[in-house]
Structures are given as structure tokens and as C-alpha cells.
Simulated assay, not measured.
Amino acid sequence: MKSKITKWMLAFFMLFFIFQTGTIANADDDDEGVRYERHEHEDEDREYEEDDDEGYYEENTTNYGDGTMYESTPVQSTFWNLWTREISSTTSNTELPFQEAKEVSIELNNTSESFFMIPQNGQLLVPGEKVAKFLGAKSRYYQQSKILELSKGTEELIVRAGTNAAYENMVKTPMPTQSFYYERSVYLPISVISNALGYRVNWDAAKLAIILQEI
């Protein structure tokens, strides 16, 4: 009788040990899966073509990356020729040098070229690739994601059509208005592309032209 009890006790302890070992192994596997999943999400967050770019910088709010929108103090006035890199509530074109979309000359170092410009929300939007070429910068456009990459020297600017978020040297930064795709070009504020690549923007009323100066 005692031998039977001993055998049953040994069998019980062996089953208990096997069960506990399997549970620990499963727990380790779960932890490993969580770590991989977290790293995968971290890698996705590093990509500038992420889906949450659209509407990232809404008026009067700031997204701190945890999915929560916090109220922020709006900038009451902006300048069409300065990229303040702050969230703006300005939606008026009254301070612009002209109010209608048209061809306007940009002058740099006594060289000038005409570009089609579109007034929008207090900003003058220009075709990114064409202006980049005029400035001696490199550009690359990705049709599927509607992303425009611009670079000159150590300066880099990445813009996605349909959003108001730009990546300046891989730092996510708000633009004063959304860029958009029009006539095979990504249009973005002239202040953004010029200031990002190292130029100051001024308006010459006598020449009816935009003058760029190296910063």
C-alpha cells in the first residue's frame, strides 16, 4: 500500500514539475514576443511616411506621441516669408504681397526664374522640385507615398503632400499650412523650402519679385 502511495506521489510531483516548466517557457516566449512587437513599432515610428502624419499638427493642439492631443498656445500671426517652426492659427492672405495664383520671379545672386505660386492660408506655396533645382538642391519624389525629399549640403527637408508636418534634418516640425500635389509637383510654403535650405526670403515691390539671400 505504501509503495502505491509513493508511486502516486512521485507521479504527482513529476506532473507538477512538467506543468510548471511549460508555464515558465510559455511566459518567456510571451515576453520575447512583446519585445519584438515593441521594437517593430519603434521601427515603424522612425519612418517618415507613417500614416499618422496626416493632420499631425492641428490648430491649437499638440500631439506628444502617446496618442493624446494637448492644447497649446496658438501663434496669432505668422509671416509668409519666415518659417517660425511653430503651430499657427493664421488663415488670412491679407499680408501677402499678392492675392492671386500667378507666375512670379524668384531672384538669387542676380539670377532669376519664374515659378507658379499659389496663395493659401497666409502663405505662398511653390513647386518644391523646381525651386529646389533653382537653389542647386537635390530632390527626389516618391509617387506612391507622395513624399518629396530635398537636400543641399548637410541640410535635408522631407515633405509629404496633404500634411502640414515636415522633417527638417529628420526632426518632425510643423509647417504653417499643408502641402499639396498639383500639376505634377508638391507645393509647399516658400518660407519652408527656402529657410530649410539656408535662404532668407524678401519681397521687392519695385521688381515685383521674391529675393533670396543666403543666411
Rank of each mutant, 00 (worst) to 15 (best):
P127G: 06
S112L: 00
Y141P: 00
P176F: 07
P176M: 08
Y167Q: 12
Q120V: 13
K7R: 12
H39P: 03
V34G: 07
T90C: 11
A205L: 04
V34S: 14
T73A: 06
P74F: 05
I106K: 00
T91P: 04
D43G: 09
T23L: 14
I190H: 00
Y187V: 08
D31P: 02
Y70S: 04
K207Y: 03
T6E: 11
Y181M: 01
I211C: 08
F19R: 14
N109Y: 03
S179N: 02
W203P: 03
E129L: 08
S191W: 05
V159P: 10
P97R: 04
I87E: 06
R160C: 04
Y181W: 03
L197C: 12
H41C: 03
D29H: 15
W83E: 07
E47W: 10
Y142W: 09
M1Q: 10
L208R: 15
G67T: 08
L10E: 11
V75I: 10
Q144P: 02
N110T: 02
M9A: 12
L124V: 11
K7G: 01
S92W: 05
Y57R: 01
H39S: 08
I193Q: 03
H41T: 10
I193D: 00
K2P: 00
S112G: 00
S105N: 13
S89H: 01
V171S: 12
F19D: 11
N110W: 02
D52H: 06
V201D: 00
I211S: 11
W203T: 03
L148V: 08
Q120C: 09
S77K: 12
E37C: 01
D204T: 13
S194Y: 02
V201E: 00
A196L: 10
E107Q: 11
M170P: 02
S105G: 09
K133H: 14
M14A: 15
